[in-house]
Design a protein around this nucleic acid. Structure first.
Lengths: 207, 207
DNA sequence: TACCGGATAGAGCGTTCGCTCTAGTTGTGC
DNA sequence: GCACAACTAGAGCGAACGCTCTATCCGGTA
């Protein structure tokens, strides 16, 4: 069974971009982007539907659990996007220290090009739902764990002991999160670049 | 009518406890705590007034600029609270590396004792208003700058060159922010403790 | 042809939002 | 004693909130 397709898509089929994507996917993507920029409480379901060019009925058809269920799906989508970027950065260099620097450069570029609005896809939602929406918090925790594993594997490949790699990977993700937050608030890529330099220096002390 | 009403006790109150605090202060404190836990959009003015044991009229009397003006005052209040904690941690040891570890321990304890709800007082608000509420964003940026200066001074006192100290201080604040976020989401103090260990190791490479 | 069920469409429910507005209450200076 | 400013008090506005509900549309099957 194929993923949900737009049954009666009134828009012309020749148009590219989101039009070729199923309704459910468009809703998830719009939700992920809005949650990333405005957080959970700042984002309304009607706004998500409008951005996704879907109707409220479709949203509740695909996500009968309402806003929370949609938010969980959006967080998972953001997790994948962020993981893709991490993978790309980590693959840029054999040396783990240089690879982490590549990650910070990627993040800095993305952030600047979005005028400092597109930071970590889960941070805003995570912070304002902590302790009040267990499903969402769990999805955020899984995202962080997944990202940490990506970094940890790279550090292991670089020759670090597994225990060391795991702890250092956790600290790396924490630092990237904080540096991205700081960069957004200060509207500068310097915090991300500084984080990259210092993470590289730190990793080298273990090599 | 109501029985217990805070009367005209503006800046009186040498006694401890909220009862002796002026209405304006109670409003700012309640707003700061709610913004820290629920973010900007997740916090309503009526809830702030209720928590502060004040009325809506009082809120708009003291903050005619509405929610945004109140949020700026609350962010400034949170900045001071966090700065006090940083100062306490930094004063705990002459060695800057050990002092930063003390900061992470303080943060971890506070976080755990609040059941992981009381993280950075500005992070949630900052993330969801980035690029959409310049006054609030500016206040958040000033807070981060202030905290960075505190760490930078400590590093200078420890013998680091000023340029090095400034850059390292920025990275330290970023890391603390990220580690606190991660600790809240994962409901564990380990990210903060790991951040402390690695920051200390990093600082020592400059000594 | 008739029908079924997934998907679309949007009016409308009750509630809450930020905020305005008018009155009432209180301490202080003349 | 009185006027005045500072402060408290809360009803109520229009808009937006999350969500429910019914009505339709459509391709595929019988």
């Amino acid at each position: 069974m194929h993923t949900t397709k737009p049954r009666h898509d009134t828009t012309e089929g020749t148009e590219g971009g989101d039009a070729a994507v199923g309704t459910r996917d468009r809703i998830v993507r719009a939700a992920a982007r809005l949650l990333q920029r405005q957080g959970y409480e700042g984002t309304g379901i009607k706004q998500i539907a409008r951005d996704a060019e879907a109707t409220l009925g479709s949203v509740y058809h695909f996500f009968p659990g309402g806003k929370q269920e949609l938010a969980v799906a959006a967080i998972r989508h953001g997790e994948q996007e962020f993981a893709d970027m991490l993978r790309a950065g980590l693959a840029a260099d054999d040396d783990p220290a240089q690879a982490v620097v590549a990650c910070t450069l990627l993040l800095a570029t993305t952030l600047r090009e979005s005028d400092w609005t597109d930071g970590c896809p889960v941070a805003a939602t995570a912070l304002e739902t902590v302790g009040r929406a267990p499903d969402i918090q769990r999805a955020c925790a899984e995202a962080i764990g997944h990202w940490t594993d990506l970094v940890s594997d790279k550090l292991c490949d670089g020759g670090l002991a597994e225990d060391t790699a795991k702890e250092l990977a956790g600290a790396t993700i924490s630092t990237l999160e904080g540096a991205e937050l700081t960069a957004q608030v200060l509207r500068s890529e310097e915090p991300l670049l500084a984080a990259g330099r210092h993470l590289a220096r730190l990793i080298r002390t273990y090599q």
